[in-house]
Design a protein around this nucleic acid. Structure first.
Lengths: 117, 117, 117, 117
DNA sequence: GTGGTCTAGACCACA
DNA sequence: GTGGTCTAGACCACA
């Protein structure tokens, strides 16, 4: 069961969730993905929420609607291969900005991270 | 001039901004902070937005209202000293969770971070 | 028609009013409560005043916001069942403190109460 | 050291405090009471607050200003003797109203009170 | 001057 | 329709 944060719109969390499923290899290029209704049922959200999420994913070229046949993962491997490093770079940049905003240099942030948990 | 993100409520961004000012040493315990109106003017937002932010900061014990005299930084040094490590820990945890969600182990995340930017 | 005291903020009186409605059995766990706008209309106050009251009630765990669906009574029966004795205990304690502050022992206070009105 | 509640104006709490000192026999009729400045110092409040409190007490006939000589306890023993039962009656009435608002009859309230603490 | 409260009204995302 | 947020502006008690 997915836990939804209530400070971020659910459809954006769905977009994120889907991208991570792709990154983790759940889908191959050209795979058919769950229908709006199926995904809505699985995630226990309103179908409109899925529509909005699929819309964004299609705009970004990650998935493609094929008329009345549903949505399919793009065959464009460049888009797919860029997904993971794009996330990673964003996460790294965000982390360093956050740490800097409370007075940590990059070196200190790395050190703190190593010792964490 | 502060730039407001439009996906997070301004009053929450003010809470965060203020905490970081405290972390960076802008205030000493027991210092009087800017009045609701002064801070509103400085940040160019409505006074009510500051009221809401100060309310949260007071609930968390970081500042104290002294009725008609304004708000003051708490003298409780434990609360103050916990602020920075609390942020740092949260940032580290979030970063590692994010990286894990796209398939990075902690060691890989640290490595990626070192090489970033 | 509710009469508002003018020495206590209306939103606090709303909090109190709502808790008493719960205590008197107006709601069951998981019930949907009046929307912000409906309650504002019924009590003839500004919606923002209700927002503030519901915010406090949610912080105390008595009600839960379900994003765009409205607010619901908690299913946590412990919170609900503690409500009435909690009020009663507070009232008793306050009364005895008051009476003590003007020179009555507990036994004298009980006696005075019996004979009152 | 007196603890001030922050939901009631301090001058009203001072009025109450003073009346209770009278009830508990701290003063005799015609006694000179503390000057505004002395009382302000003792209670650690702003002198204006004491001015406002003495003003109310004078309006109620409990104390009397004598030109430049300060304030004195009234010689009107009726006022003084009514003070205690007046408080007691108010406290009893308030308590019963509170308990009634959460579903207790008078008999139940008395019982609850006996068993309290 | 200070915070506290309240109103009227607006716009937004979401469902 | 639902809550969430924000603004503009007002009035208040208190110090």
């Amino acid at each position: 069961m997915v836990e939804w944060r209530n400070d971020i719109a659910i459809y954006l969390q769905v977009v994120d969730l889907f991208k991570k499923e792709v990154i983790l290899g759940k889908y191959m290029p050209n795979d058919k993905i769950l229908s709006v209704r199926e995904y809505a049922l699985k995630l226990n959200v309103n179908p409109n929420t899925i529509v909005k999420a699929y819309d964004i994913l299609a705009q970004e070229g990650l998935i493609e609607p094929r008329s009345t046949n549903g949505y399919f993962i793009t065959e464009n491997k460049e888009i797919l291969s860029k997904l993971k490093p794009s996330f990673a770079t964003t996460y790294c940049r965000e982390f360093l900005e956050h740490m800097k905003s409370i007075g940590y240099s990059k070196a200190e942030a790395v050190l703190m991270l190593k010792e964490s948990e």
